[in-house]
Simulated assay, not measured.
Amino acid sequence: MTSSASAQSTAAKEPAVIGYPNRKGVTIERVTYPARNMGTTIVANLFKPAGFNTNRKYAAIVVTHPFGGVKEQTAGLYAQHLAELGFVTLAYDASYQGESGGEPRLMEVPAQRLDDISCAIDFLVKHPQVDAGRLGSLGICAGGGYAMCNAQTEMRVRAVATVSMFNLGEARREAMGNLTYEQRIERLKQASAARSREARGEPVTLVPVVPESPAAFTDRTPDLYRQGYEYYVTPRAKHPNSPNRYMLSSLPLQMAFFPFDQVETITPRPILMIVGEKADTKFWSDEVLAKAQEPKELFVVNGATHMDMYDKPQFVTPAVAKLNAFFGQHLALA
């Protein structure tokens, strides 16, 4: 059995949204569609509002999960909430990850991640109950960086929003201020050596996304990664298809990713960034706010950290209300 087939058999036993069993009339349909450039299949959950009417067209939103995540975690939670408010939403597993295809497993390939969003849009524009002229894009954490970058060239996106946006490229190059240039070069050498081993047929080298236990924390470990352990590794949101690993040999592709370079091309389409007041990643949303053209907005959730925005109701609730107002306005019928 392949790893992707194993993931599919596991998924049938897992909830569509971790920690949120009440669907409130929302229908969740497991769907598949092509990853166009790879010849593989993407697996997604399509969320349909209560009272779904096959005789009308709905605004739809693609929801992109964080680095190391899967569709059943925070992406599915936001997709569920937005479906409760009347949107058709799609939360999918990235290529090489979750139930989606792609070998070797657990690669993080930014260029493919960007096209995964466009592949989701390809699926939605063909759906008989989706209005292809009213498509939004929402990304969480690294998914927010991908959503922001994709919208710069993906003109089918009418409005783009992020939650706890994370610049994966800069984070890999600098480790949020914890990585020197010399250490960066050493990590690139390690990644290159891992790729050579894989080319010779040796086992892949997998490294943790977040620390595997509090024993791995140091006084320099950012809150993001401390709280990432609580989210991904404990029962709070642990999922068998999210093993807290990625391939070391994909690190150079991540370091070469500059997601904000053309953010001005999104205008006149609107941008919304939602961020926790206490998030140690807030500076990235501030950076995009400074670079982007109008219309743009930064919405700060009082008291929240980066990871609080993933699933804690007291912080997700105002974020969803803001997303509803944003997408409701900008995905309205012309």
Rank of each mutant, 00 (worst) to 15 (best):
S4Q: 15
A5D: 15
Q8L: 15
E14D: 13
P15C: 04
P15M: 01
P21F: 00
P21C: 00
K24S: 13
T27A: 14
T27W: 09
I28P: 04
T32K: 12
Y33I: 06
N37V: 15
M38E: 15
T40A: 11
L46A: 06
K48S: 13
A50T: 09
Y58S: 06
Y58M: 06
I61R: 02
V62C: 04
V63D: 00
V63Q: 00
T64Q: 05
K71M: 08
Q73T: 02
Q73G: 02
L77G: 10
A79Y: 00
A79G: 03
A79T: 03
A79F: 01
E84N: 10
T89M: 03
Y92Q: 08
D93P: 09
Y96H: 09
S100H: 05
G102V: 05
G102H: 05
L106G: 09
Q112R: 13
Q112Y: 11
Q112K: 12
D116F: 02
I117E: 12
I117R: 11
C119V: 09
I121R: 00
L124D: 00
P128D: 09
V130M: 03
S137M: 14
L138I: 09
I140G: 01
C141Q: 02
A142N: 12
G144M: 03
C149W: 03
Q152P: 05
Q152R: 04
E154L: 06
A159I: 01
A159K: 00
V160W: 00
V163R: 04
S164H: 06
M165C: 14
N167H: 07
L168I: 11
L168R: 03
G169Y: 04
E170T: 13
E170S: 14
E170F: 15
A171R: 12
R172A: 15
R172N: 14
E174M: 14
N178V: 08
L179H: 08
L179G: 06
T180C: 12
Y181M: 12
E182K: 12
I185N: 08
R187Y: 13
A194R: 04
R197E: 11
A199S: 11
A199H: 08
P203C: 04
T205C: 11
L206M: 11
L206K: 07
V209S: 04
V209G: 02
V210I: 10
S213R: 05
A215N: 08
F217A: 07
L224Y: 14
R226N: 08
E230I: 06
Y231Q: 04
V233W: 09
T234S: 06
A237E: 03
P240E: 06
N244G: 02
N244R: 05
P252W: 04
P252C: 07
L253Y: 08
L253M: 11
M255N: 01
D261I: 13
T265Q: 13
I266H: 04
I266Y: 03
L272H: 09
I274W: 05
G276W: 01
G276N: 01
E277S: 10
K278A: 13
A279N: 07
D280C: 10
D280V: 10
W284P: 07
L289I: 12
A290W: 11
K291R: 12
K296V: 02
K296F: 02
E297V: 09
L298N: 06
N302M: 14
D311G: 15
D311C: 14
A319C: 10
N324I: 12
N324V: 12
F326A: 06
G328C: 07
G328Y: 08
L333Q: 15
L333D: 14
A334M: 12
